[in-house]
Design a protein around this nucleic acid. Structure first.
Length: 480
RNA sequence: GGUCAGUUGGUGAAACGGUUAACACAUCGCCCUCUCAAGGCGACACUCACGGGUUCGAAUCCCGUACUGAUCACCA
């Protein structure tokens, strides 16, 4: 069997949206599962929709995700060029369209749009465009061409019979030929239509597996007709169900839905995003959800791609992102998180201790900031914060507890979490308190918060002895 | 409207004619605990859009209905 070759063929029209990225992922996985090649092709023939910098976004996104392409505009390959506008300049589409005319599989059409519109209106729903130009003799055609009349090239389609194809996801689909138009291959401006260029490129690049969104399911028979006209092998088709924003709408950048870039900015990790979207529309055969990219490639199976649109659930992504953060190696985790810590606190604190304190408490990187601002300066707080049902504390209790805490800590020389905890918890036991009764008021004094990462003793360690005692004093002043 | 496709809990989903309809997220309890998390345990679809049929037996196969989506361009 020949080597599997898949391609990702985006238009550079702006941000990379999630559905698009997932299609790229699937194409990548299908290739890599069988040691095949993954190709990047830029489809930029619609000059009007081009967006500055969009190609770089595509490169960057693929790179950040580890979806490395074996061939593409930036790294070359034996099937170039990989940018459609460049391919067009070489005249291949023009050449192949005319080849089809010579073969008698396509024809020149000089019809005006109004003529077609007229037919369409007359026929209504059962519209089937009957092209009068098909009846033109060779001489008549040549005369029109010589006269410089604008023309398009249309594929010949016999209205009788049916065309069917097998999709790896949706199964065998059959349509009647009379529902198919004699599609335009080459436009009057000499540009190929998207569909035509696609088929030519896929064939010329030896693409074995065409992976794309299921919105192309309906036009696939037309593609097949082109392959058949040339006598080319038809690729395997893998149509993917859409990624939805809700029950009715797809995720799309037009609606302002989250793009890959947006998710990164919100503190999600590329690996987690990729892992999550792999599971939107595909399910592994084993009971497992966390997969690295290479593990996905191994486990991936086209047969297990679903047929229904899957709603993007940010909550589950958030959970999964947290799993990635928690499972990360310590050093990698510190490297990841330190910039965020130092961005809000500077370098005055032991950022590794802070990183430890927030480790189990963050799901996304963007949660870090709010969680740690109190280290710089305790939050302003109301005395009511000292109320805690479980600790049985209130401002009055705090007033009696805090001096005890202070006394213990003043006597402590070896300042670390462990020792702080021990001395306080021993004291609590001695006085017949629960730990929480000692710790909670202390936490409030140190952070100004009812909820803080790490707990009172971890915070005390990070703040240092002096600052800890100062903040306790401040709390005491405030209470009196 | 024509054509094509889809329909299992709030969400992702498993099941390939026979199970109490997995598992995960979310939610809600409980446990653990120096708060919150994390972690542990448990609850959560009398039922697989609906109606028929086939079968000893259907979420699974067939037909119909409803609903949803896609597509019907010299746009990609």
């Amino acid at each position: 069997m020949s080597k599997i070759r898949t391609r990702f063929a985006p238009s550079p029209t702006g941000y990379m949206h999630i559905g698009n990225l997932r299609t790229a992922l699937y194409a990548y996985l299908i290739a890599k599962k069988d040691d095949g090649d993954f190709i990047l092709r830029i489809e930029d023939t619609d000059q009007g929709r081009l967006v500055q910098g969009a190609v770089d976004i595509i490169y960057n996104t693929l790179k950040q995700c580890g979806l490395n392409h074996d061939e593409g505009p930036d790294n070359g390959g034996n099937y170039g060029p990989y940018v459609q506008s460049e391919r067009m300049r070489s005249g291949i589409y023009h050449e192949y369209a005319h080849k089809l005319v010579e073969m008698g599989k396509a024809h020149y059409c000089f019809c005006k749009e109004e003529d077609i519109e007229k037919q369409r209106n007359e026929q209504g729903d059962s519209f089937y465009f009957v092209d009068p130009c098909k009846l033109l003799s060779k001489e008549e055609i040549q005369k029109k061409l010589d006269a410089g009349e604008p023309y398009v090239i249309r594929l010949n389609v016999e209205p009788e019979g049916t065309t069917s194809f097998t999709d790896e996801v949706y199964g065998t689909i059959t349509v009647e030929n009379k529902t198919l138009d004699e599609m335009v291959l080459l436009k009057s401006d000499g540009f190929p239509t998207y569909n035509f260029a696609n088929v030519i490129d896929d064939h010329l690049m030896d693409i074995t597996d065409v992976v794309r969104g299921n919105e192309y399911l309906s036009s696939t028979p037309k593609y097949n007709l082109i392959y058949e006209a040339f006598g080319w092998d038809i690729p395997r088709y893998i149509h993917c169900p859409p990624v939805m924003k809700d029950e009715h709408q797809k995720l799309s950048k037009r609606n302002g839905d989250a793009s890959f870039q947006d998710l990164l900015a919100k503190g999600y990790l590329p690996e987690a995003i990729l892992n999550y979207i792999a599971l939107l529309g595909w399910a592994p055969s084993e009971d497992r959800e966390i997969y690295s990219l290479s593990e996905l490639a191994q486990a991936f199976d086209v047969k297990r791609i679903g047929t229904t649109g899957a709603i993007f659930d940010i909550d589950k992504l958030t959970w999964m992102n947290g799993v990635y953060i928690r499972n990360m190696e310590k050093d990698k985790y510190y490297d990841l998180v330190k910039p965020y810590i130092q961005e809000t606190l500077g370098t005055g604190f032991n950022s590794e201790l802070i990183a430890d304190a927030i480790h189990d408490r963050i799901n996304t990187l963007s949660e870090i900031k709010d969680m740690i601002t109190f280290f710089e300066k305790a939050d302003e707080y109301d005395d009511d914060v000292f109320f805690n049902k479980k600790a049985k504390t209130d401002p009055e209790v705090a007033k009696t507890i805090l001096p005890i805490v202070k006394e213990c800590l003043e006597s402590l020389d070896n300042w670390n979490n462990q020792n702080i905890f021990e001395i306080l918890s021993n004291k609590a036991k001695e006085l017949g308190y629960k730990n929480i009764t000692m710790m909670y008021p202390m936490q409030v004094a140190l952070s100004g918060r009812s909820v803080a990462p790490g707990g009172a003793t971890a915070i005390a360690e990070i703040l240092g002895k002096k600052e800890t005692l100062d903040r306790i004093d401040q709390a005491l002043n405030k209470l009196s």
